[in-house]
Protein backbone atom coordinates (compact mmCIF):
# COMPACT_ATOMS: atom_id res chain seq x y z
CA UNK A 1 0.00 0.00 0.00
CA UNK A 2 1.34 3.37 -0.95
CA UNK A 3 1.45 6.20 1.55
CA UNK A 4 -1.77 8.16 1.49
CA UNK A 5 -1.35 11.80 0.49
CA UNK A 6 -1.42 14.38 3.29
CA UNK A 7 -4.38 16.27 1.89
CA UNK A 8 -6.43 13.09 1.96
CA UNK A 9 -5.78 12.73 5.69
CA UNK A 10 -6.45 16.40 6.37
CA UNK A 11 -9.67 16.36 4.37
CA UNK A 12 -10.85 13.13 5.93
CA UNK A 13 -10.08 14.47 9.41
CA UNK A 14 -12.05 17.70 8.87
CA UNK A 15 -14.97 15.77 7.39
CA UNK A 16 -14.88 13.30 10.27
CA UNK A 17 -15.10 16.15 12.80
CA UNK A 18 -18.32 17.42 11.22
CA UNK A 19 -19.84 13.98 10.84
CA UNK A 20 -18.96 13.23 14.47
CA UNK A 21 -20.50 16.52 15.61
CA UNK A 22 -23.70 15.70 13.74
CA UNK A 23 -23.84 12.20 15.29
CA UNK A 24 -23.00 13.52 18.74
CA UNK A 25 -25.90 15.99 18.50
CA UNK A 26 -28.36 13.10 18.68
CA UNK A 27 -27.04 12.26 22.17
CA UNK A 28 -25.82 15.52 23.56
CA UNK A 29 -25.54 19.20 22.73
CA UNK A 30 -24.01 21.91 24.97
CA UNK A 31 -27.40 23.67 25.30
CA UNK A 32 -30.90 22.70 24.28
CA UNK A 33 -31.85 24.56 21.12
CA UNK A 34 -35.59 24.76 21.59
CA UNK A 35 -35.43 27.12 24.57
CA UNK A 36 -35.65 30.84 23.88
CA UNK A 37 -33.72 33.09 26.27
CA UNK A 38 -34.13 36.63 25.05
CA UNK A 39 -32.00 38.00 27.87
CA UNK A 40 -29.10 36.00 26.52
CA UNK A 41 -29.48 37.09 22.87
CA UNK A 42 -26.70 38.00 20.42
CA UNK A 43 -23.92 37.34 22.92
CA UNK A 44 -20.45 37.21 21.33
CA UNK A 45 -18.36 34.10 21.93
CA UNK A 46 -17.62 33.47 25.62
CA UNK A 47 -16.41 30.58 27.74
CA UNK A 48 -20.01 29.55 28.34
CA UNK A 49 -21.09 29.92 24.71
CA UNK A 50 -18.01 29.15 22.61
CA UNK A 51 -19.53 30.52 19.44
CA UNK A 52 -21.92 33.02 21.05
CA UNK A 53 -25.71 33.08 20.90
CA UNK A 54 -28.23 34.04 18.24
CA UNK A 55 -31.12 36.51 18.19
CA UNK A 56 -33.22 34.21 20.38
CA UNK A 57 -30.41 33.52 22.82
CA UNK A 58 -29.81 29.99 21.51
CA UNK A 59 -26.29 28.56 21.64
CA UNK A 60 -24.79 28.76 18.12
CA UNK A 61 -22.48 25.76 18.59
CA UNK A 62 -25.47 23.59 19.49
CA UNK A 63 -27.42 24.94 16.52
CA UNK A 64 -24.51 24.17 14.19
CA UNK A 65 -24.21 20.63 15.53
CA UNK A 66 -27.88 19.92 14.94
CA UNK A 67 -27.76 21.75 11.59
CA UNK A 68 -24.92 19.51 10.45
CA UNK A 69 -27.36 16.58 10.53
CA UNK A 70 -29.58 18.15 7.90
CA UNK A 71 -26.73 19.24 5.66
CA UNK A 72 -25.01 15.88 5.77
CA UNK A 73 -28.21 13.85 5.48
CA UNK A 74 -29.44 15.83 2.48
CA UNK A 75 -26.10 15.60 0.72
CA UNK A 76 -25.63 11.88 1.43
CA UNK A 77 -29.10 10.91 0.26
CA UNK A 78 -28.79 13.11 -2.82
CA UNK A 79 -25.48 11.46 -3.73
CA UNK A 80 -27.16 8.09 -3.12
CA UNK A 81 -29.96 8.96 -5.56
CA UNK A 82 -27.40 10.06 -8.12
CA UNK A 83 -25.39 6.85 -7.80
CA UNK A 84 -28.34 4.45 -7.65
CA UNK A 85 -29.96 5.87 -10.77
CA UNK A 86 -27.08 7.48 -12.62
CA UNK A 87 -24.56 4.64 -12.51
CA UNK A 88 -26.85 1.96 -14.01
CA UNK A 89 -27.97 4.42 -16.69
CA UNK A 90 -24.36 5.24 -17.54
CA UNK A 91 -23.37 1.56 -17.66
CA UNK A 92 -26.38 0.78 -19.80
CA UNK A 93 -25.70 3.64 -22.20
CA UNK A 94 -22.05 2.61 -22.58
CA UNK A 95 -22.99 -1.02 -23.18
CA UNK A 96 -25.23 0.08 -26.04
CA UNK A 97 -22.97 2.77 -27.40
CA UNK A 98 -24.42 4.58 -30.40
CA UNK A 99 -27.77 2.79 -30.20
CA UNK A 100 -31.00 4.72 -29.67
CA UNK A 101 -30.97 3.77 -26.01
CA UNK A 102 -27.61 5.45 -25.48
CA UNK A 103 -28.84 8.48 -27.40
CA UNK A 104 -32.02 8.65 -25.32
CA UNK A 105 -30.17 8.40 -22.01
CA UNK A 106 -27.66 11.04 -23.01
CA UNK A 107 -30.32 13.44 -24.34
CA UNK A 108 -32.26 12.96 -21.12
CA UNK A 109 -29.11 13.83 -19.23
CA UNK A 110 -28.61 16.99 -21.26
CA UNK A 111 -32.15 17.96 -20.48
CA UNK A 112 -31.70 17.58 -16.73
CA UNK A 113 -28.57 19.71 -16.98
CA UNK A 114 -30.82 22.51 -18.23
CA UNK A 115 -32.63 22.43 -14.86
CA UNK A 116 -30.22 23.60 -12.15
CA UNK A 117 -31.14 22.11 -8.78
CA UNK A 118 -32.49 25.50 -7.69
CA UNK A 119 -34.98 25.43 -10.56
CA UNK A 120 -36.02 21.87 -9.73
CA UNK A 121 -36.47 22.94 -6.12
CA UNK A 122 -38.56 25.91 -7.22
CA UNK A 123 -40.81 23.67 -9.30
CA UNK A 124 -41.24 21.11 -6.54
CA UNK A 125 -41.80 23.70 -3.85
CA UNK A 126 -44.34 25.59 -5.94
CA UNK A 127 -46.49 22.47 -6.02
CA UNK A 128 -45.70 20.59 -2.81
CA UNK A 129 -44.56 23.35 -0.48
CA UNK A 130 -41.06 23.70 1.02
CA UNK A 131 -39.33 20.90 2.95
CA UNK A 132 -35.96 19.24 3.44
CA UNK A 133 -37.28 16.40 1.29
CA UNK A 134 -37.55 18.81 -1.65
CA UNK A 135 -33.93 19.75 -1.25
CA UNK A 136 -32.94 16.08 -1.33
CA UNK A 137 -35.04 15.45 -4.41
CA UNK A 138 -33.83 18.55 -6.25
CA UNK A 139 -30.15 17.92 -5.57
CA UNK A 140 -30.57 14.19 -6.12
CA UNK A 141 -32.20 14.62 -9.53
CA UNK A 142 -29.42 16.95 -10.58
CA UNK A 143 -26.87 14.33 -9.48
CA UNK A 144 -28.28 11.64 -11.78
CA UNK A 145 -26.84 12.96 -15.05
CA UNK A 146 -23.55 13.77 -13.32
CA UNK A 147 -23.03 10.15 -12.32
CA UNK A 148 -24.47 8.82 -15.57
CA UNK A 149 -21.94 10.86 -17.53
CA UNK A 150 -18.94 9.97 -15.42
CA UNK A 151 -19.88 6.30 -15.55
CA UNK A 152 -20.52 6.30 -19.28
CA UNK A 153 -17.31 8.19 -20.02
CA UNK A 154 -15.22 5.81 -17.96
CA UNK A 155 -17.08 2.77 -19.26
CA UNK A 156 -16.74 3.72 -22.93
CA UNK A 157 -12.97 3.71 -22.76
CA UNK A 158 -13.06 0.36 -20.94
CA UNK A 159 -15.34 -1.17 -23.58
CA UNK A 160 -12.64 -0.62 -26.20
CA UNK A 161 -10.10 -2.64 -24.20
CA UNK A 162 -9.14 -6.14 -25.20
CA UNK A 163 -10.17 -7.70 -21.91
CA UNK A 164 -13.76 -6.85 -22.69
CA UNK A 165 -13.36 -8.52 -26.09
CA UNK A 166 -11.82 -11.52 -24.35
CA UNK A 167 -14.85 -11.70 -22.07
CA UNK A 168 -17.15 -11.57 -25.09
CA UNK A 169 -15.16 -14.36 -26.71
CA UNK A 170 -15.73 -16.25 -23.45
CA UNK A 171 -19.44 -15.89 -24.18
CA UNK A 172 -20.30 -13.29 -21.56
CA UNK A 173 -23.17 -10.90 -22.23
CA UNK A 174 -23.24 -7.14 -21.89
CA UNK A 175 -24.88 -7.14 -18.47
CA UNK A 176 -22.40 -9.60 -17.04
CA UNK A 177 -19.45 -7.71 -18.55
CA UNK A 178 -20.81 -4.42 -17.19
CA UNK A 179 -21.02 -5.82 -13.68
CA UNK A 180 -17.87 -7.94 -13.71
CA UNK A 181 -15.44 -5.92 -15.78
CA UNK A 182 -16.72 -2.36 -16.16
CA UNK A 183 -18.19 -1.39 -12.79
CA UNK A 184 -15.17 -2.38 -10.64
CA UNK A 185 -12.91 -0.39 -12.92
CA UNK A 186 -15.02 2.79 -12.87
CA UNK A 187 -15.45 2.53 -9.09
CA UNK A 188 -12.47 4.81 -8.47
CA UNK A 189 -13.95 7.50 -10.66
CA UNK A 190 -17.25 7.14 -8.83
CA UNK A 191 -15.67 7.44 -5.39
CA UNK A 192 -13.93 10.65 -6.41
CA UNK A 193 -17.05 12.05 -8.08
CA UNK A 194 -19.12 11.03 -5.05
CA UNK A 195 -16.94 13.14 -2.77
CA UNK A 196 -17.23 16.10 -5.12
CA UNK A 197 -21.01 15.75 -5.37
CA UNK A 198 -21.20 15.40 -1.59
CA UNK A 199 -19.50 18.75 -1.15
CA UNK A 200 -21.61 20.35 -3.89
CA UNK A 201 -24.67 18.92 -2.16
CA UNK A 202 -23.72 20.64 1.12
CA UNK A 203 -23.37 23.93 -0.77
CA UNK A 204 -26.64 23.46 -2.66
CA UNK A 205 -28.54 22.52 0.49
CA UNK A 206 -27.23 25.64 2.20
CA UNK A 207 -28.35 27.76 -0.76
CA UNK A 208 -31.80 26.20 -0.87
CA UNK A 209 -32.45 26.55 2.84
CA UNK A 210 -31.08 30.11 2.68
CA UNK A 211 -33.89 31.06 0.27
CA UNK A 212 -36.43 29.04 2.25
CA UNK A 213 -36.74 26.05 -0.08
CA UNK A 214 -35.02 23.59 2.26
CA UNK A 215 -35.51 22.43 5.84
CA UNK A 216 -38.28 24.35 7.59
CA UNK A 217 -38.36 25.76 11.14
CA UNK A 218 -37.94 24.63 13.80
CA UNK A 219 -35.30 22.26 12.28
CA UNK A 220 -32.09 24.28 12.36
CA UNK A 221 -30.04 24.38 9.18
CA UNK A 222 -26.87 26.23 8.28
CA UNK A 223 -28.42 28.00 5.33
CA UNK A 224 -31.40 29.31 7.30
CA UNK A 225 -29.18 30.41 10.18
CA UNK A 226 -27.42 32.60 7.64
CA UNK A 227 -30.70 33.91 6.24
CA UNK A 228 -31.87 34.87 9.72
CA UNK A 229 -28.57 36.50 10.58
CA UNK A 230 -28.63 38.73 7.55
CA UNK A 231 -30.42 41.73 9.04
CA UNK A 232 -28.35 41.51 12.23
CA UNK A 233 -24.95 41.22 10.58
CA UNK A 234 -23.81 44.74 11.50
CA UNK A 235 -24.90 44.28 15.14
CA UNK A 236 -23.48 40.81 15.71
CA UNK A 237 -21.25 39.61 12.85
CA UNK A 238 -20.49 36.34 14.66
CA UNK A 239 -23.95 34.93 14.01
CA UNK A 240 -23.30 35.20 10.27
CA UNK A 241 -19.67 34.16 10.37
CA UNK A 242 -19.81 30.83 12.25
CA UNK A 243 -22.47 29.06 10.15
CA UNK A 244 -20.65 30.24 7.02
CA UNK A 245 -17.36 28.91 8.35
CA UNK A 246 -19.02 25.59 9.12
CA UNK A 247 -20.10 25.29 5.48
CA UNK A 248 -16.71 26.36 4.15
CA UNK A 249 -14.78 23.94 6.35
CA UNK A 250 -17.01 20.98 5.58
CA UNK A 251 -16.86 21.62 1.85
CA UNK A 252 -13.12 22.26 2.01
CA UNK A 253 -12.59 19.02 3.90
CA UNK A 254 -14.59 17.03 1.38
CA UNK A 255 -12.83 18.63 -1.57
CA UNK A 256 -9.40 17.95 -0.09
CA UNK A 257 -10.48 14.39 0.48
CA UNK A 258 -11.72 14.13 -3.11
CA UNK A 259 -8.48 15.51 -4.55
CA UNK A 260 -6.46 13.24 -2.31
CA UNK A 261 -8.50 10.23 -3.38
CA UNK A 262 -8.09 11.17 -7.02
CA UNK A 263 -4.31 11.34 -6.65
CA UNK A 264 -4.33 8.08 -4.76
CA UNK A 265 -6.63 6.13 -7.06
CA UNK A 266 -5.86 7.63 -10.47
CA UNK A 267 -5.20 4.63 -12.72
CA UNK A 268 -2.87 6.68 -14.91
CA UNK A 269 -0.63 7.33 -11.94
CA UNK A 270 -0.87 3.73 -10.88
CA UNK A 271 0.26 2.43 -14.24
CA UNK A 272 3.46 4.45 -13.98
CA UNK A 273 4.50 2.75 -10.78
Amino acid sequence: MRRLPGQLWLGAAVTAVFVAAALLSFLWVPYAIDGIAIANRLKPPTMAHWLGTDQFGRDILSMLMVGARVSIAVAVVAVGIGILLGVPLGLWAAAHRGAWLDELIMRGNDLIFAFPSLVIAILITAVFGPSAFNAILAIGIFNIPVFARVTRGGALSLWTLDYVLAARVAGKGRLRISVEHILPNVANLLIVQGTIQFSLGILAEAGLSYVGLGAQPPTPSWGRMLAESQTLISLAPHIAIFPGLAIVLTVLGLNLMGDGLRDHLDPRLRRLR
Partner: peptide, 16 residues
Protein backbone atom coordinates in the same frame (compact mmCIF):
# COMPACT_ATOMS: atom_id res chain seq x y z
CA UNK B 1 -17.63 -20.87 -28.98
CA UNK B 2 -15.43 -23.01 -26.74
CA UNK B 3 -13.73 -24.46 -29.80
CA UNK B 4 -12.10 -21.12 -30.53
CA UNK B 5 -10.13 -18.62 -28.46
CA UNK B 6 -8.12 -15.48 -29.15
CA UNK B 7 -4.92 -13.69 -28.13
CA UNK B 8 -4.84 -9.92 -28.64
CA UNK B 9 -2.03 -7.51 -29.37
CA UNK B 10 -1.93 -5.30 -26.30
CA UNK B 11 -0.46 -7.10 -23.30
CA UNK B 12 -1.58 -4.20 -21.07
CA UNK B 13 -5.25 -3.84 -22.11
CA UNK B 14 -5.98 -7.56 -22.27
CA UNK B 15 -6.65 -8.10 -18.57
CA UNK B 16 -9.01 -6.71 -15.99
Amino acid sequence: RAKMQVVFQDPFGSFN
